[in-house]
């Protein structure tokens, strides 16, 4: 697969041309040039550059577990947070952060959300992982078992009798379930 250079334009207008970039290559071969402070939010990248003395600015770090689509989502989040940090280094503007985060996940399907969770886990961005697992929890709240199975992609391997017995055993847990 040919390596193409993905758009690396930062949402930040203050970023200068000389800003140091870090090259990250996704599973499908796309190379992202990412501003250093944004890339360093990815713990896996930070430790890669901290632990390897022979890496240079030209080093392209492969990220075989992250798809291009997930990478776009990850960077959108990290860039926004870098921008908040830059503007208000002391304390993040909480309301703005919340508004951004709400809009950010609203546009994502369940499948995209899970892909992002996997990526955030692999890249070790604990803040994003916490946020996304919270969103996933909200999405399965008050949902039926069938919905939860579909959400996580889990096959039901109980016999109907077993399932009926379990539902009886956990009767208390089945109040107030919404229609899917």
């Amino acid at each position: 697969m040919s390596s193409s250079i993905a758009s690396s334009s930062s949402s930040s207008s203050s970023s200068s041309k000389k800003e140091k970039k870090i090259s990250l290559k996704t599973s499908d071969g796309e190379v992202f040039e990412v501003e250093e402070p944004v890339a360093m939010q990815l713990e896996i990248v930070r430790s890669f550059f901290a632990d390897n003395e022979d890496v240079t600015e030209q080093t392209v770090m492969p990220l075989p577990n992250v798809s291009t689509a997930a990478m776009h989502g990850i960077l959108e989040y990290c860039r926004a947070h870098e921008e908040f940090r830059r503007r208000m280094p002391e304390a993040a503007p909480e309301e703005e952060v919340r508004a951004f985060e709400a809009g950010y996940v609203d546009r994502k399907s369940n499948e995209e959300l899970k892909e992002m969770i996997l990526a955030a886990n692999y890249l070790n961005i604990s803040k994003l992982l916490d946020f996304l697992t919270g969103v996933a929890a909200k999405r399965i709240e008050n949902k039926s078992v069938e919905y939860v199975r579909a959400f996580f992609g889990v096959e039901n391997d109980f016999t109907p009798e077993e399932e009926a017995n379990l539902r009886r055993e956990y009767e208390w847990a089945f109040e107030g379930v919404d229609e899917d």
């Binding site: 889990v154 096959e155 109980f158 399932e163 109040e175």
Partner: peptide, 13 residues
């Protein structure tokens, strides 16, 4: 309550 409901999802769960 929400978490316990997932015991019905599958054997492994």
């Amino acid at each position: 309550i929400e978490a316990a409901r997932t015991s019905v999802v599958s054997r492994r769960w």
